[in-house]
Write a protein that binds this DNA or RNA. Structure first.
Lengths: 275, 275
DNA sequence: AACAAAATGGAATAAAAATTCCAAAACGAG
DNA sequence: CTCGTTTTGGAATTTTTATTCCATTTTGTT
């Protein structure tokens, strides 16, 4: 055990992180789990016991001990000492911190960030309150039954469409994004047995509406992700998912929309996997 | 010992301070010392032992124990627990909860949505708590001074990159997304006076790292948006923005990342408009 | 498939910390 | 000054926590 890395003890949090980065590529499974969990929860080391951290990382305590030693400490206590000394609590009050951020200057980047964080949080809460389980279940059913899932969304809906496609791919759901690159129109790709997810918000995108109408005309099921039940997209849709997104200035946080898209994709992927 | 104050246990840091204020007038010498020291070092309770605090207050450990009991706790451990938990509410760990939920088979789309909403909300709160105003201001300064802002991000960072580019465009900031369409490499497009925003999370994308390294080698400023200060992207960056995002399996909510990107874009747009 | 090396989990042990208890000291009232 | 009461310090005890060790499993190699 004296072969590999220099066995100097990290003396600062900075050094600790460096060592962690060095190691984490060359670690076996359990120790890797430790490394990942510790990397994500570094701030809890100071106030936790071996048993608690081990439980969090889902490893036995002895694995965590070994991890501490790989990091160059004599044991957990020595490692914890480093963090206890460096500990200065950024007190947990989220709302206080938010207020501070806003007040540090009306136009400052930090103040903007605070506003967008707040907008995102409100959007998510609104989504949780208003989401219609029935429509969601229906949308999942429709997409789970489809051969290929087509996804369309432009402008601010575009990031959502691309993330949705990405997650579908990750979950082995055959999917295709209609992104209009090169002004190409891929509507021929819509085949019997497929389904379409169309995403658009006011001001509604012509291309998206057109593709949805086309799909509907051919008898393919359409899932609409939009802002209101009265959206022009609604008339073409079999299932309508509305997202209450709170704007700040001219810009949407997209938080709620992404959360909805993600749920949809994972639910569909799971349903297919089981079916 | 049943005479004096109400024997309810303080449940919040707030209540703790109230009780402390009530008591400190009516305490004998040694206990008063405890009260004073604790009042001045409340934040050390979470990370200290009885012996350490007692030494700090210059009293024997047993005096400190008595003090804890006067405060309405069963002992020191119970008191410490309050401060350890207050440091980060939402314990036990969120990812453990998700795992449990997944295993208990409550995989309905609505339950899934609730979890993603919660993940997004936590991510946003964490972002508000940990965001570094300095780095953010620096990133804005760098980008505001650039001719053209280049943006790169693949896989799950891709939606963020595309939204960032979209908002830049809306705000009349010359920008260009490197999206690798057609396996084209647009690195020649990086010109003196430009700047790059590189976005990647573990597992880090080769292409993004390569482009960042290239830009840096040519002396262009690079703003990194990543998950951790130890990210391989960090070594190529002039300003590092870290985003604490809560994962569900392989999928990020992206809420925090989008909020950060949005703030960045709007702040840069505003700064340029004024300049 | 058989072997050696590495990794792992859990029970056993050691160390450290919290908590209790009581004899001695300080205090206050008469 | 004296007696009863409160407060105090520290040693003894209990509980919790860290750490080690080794039998078993897993992994990688030939």
């Amino acid at each position: 055990m004296d072969s590999a890395a220099p066995m100097t003890t990290p003396a600062t949090v900075e050094e600790f992180r460096e060592r962690l980065a060095e190691l984490s590529d060359s670690l076996p499974k359990r120790l890797r789990q430790c490394a990942d969990y510790i990397a994500a929860n570094t701030d809890r080391i100071a106030v936790s016991t071996v048993a608690e951290l081990a439980a969090g990382a889902d490893v036995p305590p002895s694995a965590l001990m070994r991890f501490c030693q790989m990091m160059g400490f004599s044991g957990f206590s020595e490692m914890q000492k480093l963090f206890r000394e460096a500990y200065s609590p950024g007190w947990p009050d989220y709302s206080t911190r938010l207020k501070n951020l806003k007040e540090t200057g009306a136009g400052s980047p930090a103040a903007l960030l605070a506003e967008f964080v707040e907008a995102g949080r409100l959007s998510l809460e609104a989504l949780a309150k208003t989401a219609d389980e029935g429509s969601l279940a229906q949308a999942v059913a429709v997409l789970a039954a489809a051969e290929t899932v087509h996804v369309v969304g432009f402008r601010r809906a575009y990031p959502v469409a691309s993330y949705l496609t990405y997650v579908f791919e990750k979950m082995s759901v055959p999917s295709m994004q209609h992104d209009g690159v090169g002004k190409l129109d891929h509507r021929f790709a819509l085949r019997t047995g497929d389904a379409l997810v169309a995403i658009t918000f006011a001001p509604y995108s012509e291309e998206t509406l057109a593709l949805a109408a086309d799909a509907r005309a051919r008898g393919l099921p359409v899932v609409a992700v939009t802002d209101h039940l009265t959206s022009p997209l609604a008339r073409h849709a079999n299932a309508i998912l509305t997202v209450p997104e709170v704007d700040f200035g001219a810009f949407r946080s997209l938080s709620a929309t992404i959360a909805l898209a993600l749920s949809l994709a994972v639910a569909v992927g799971t349903a297919r996997g089981e079916g």
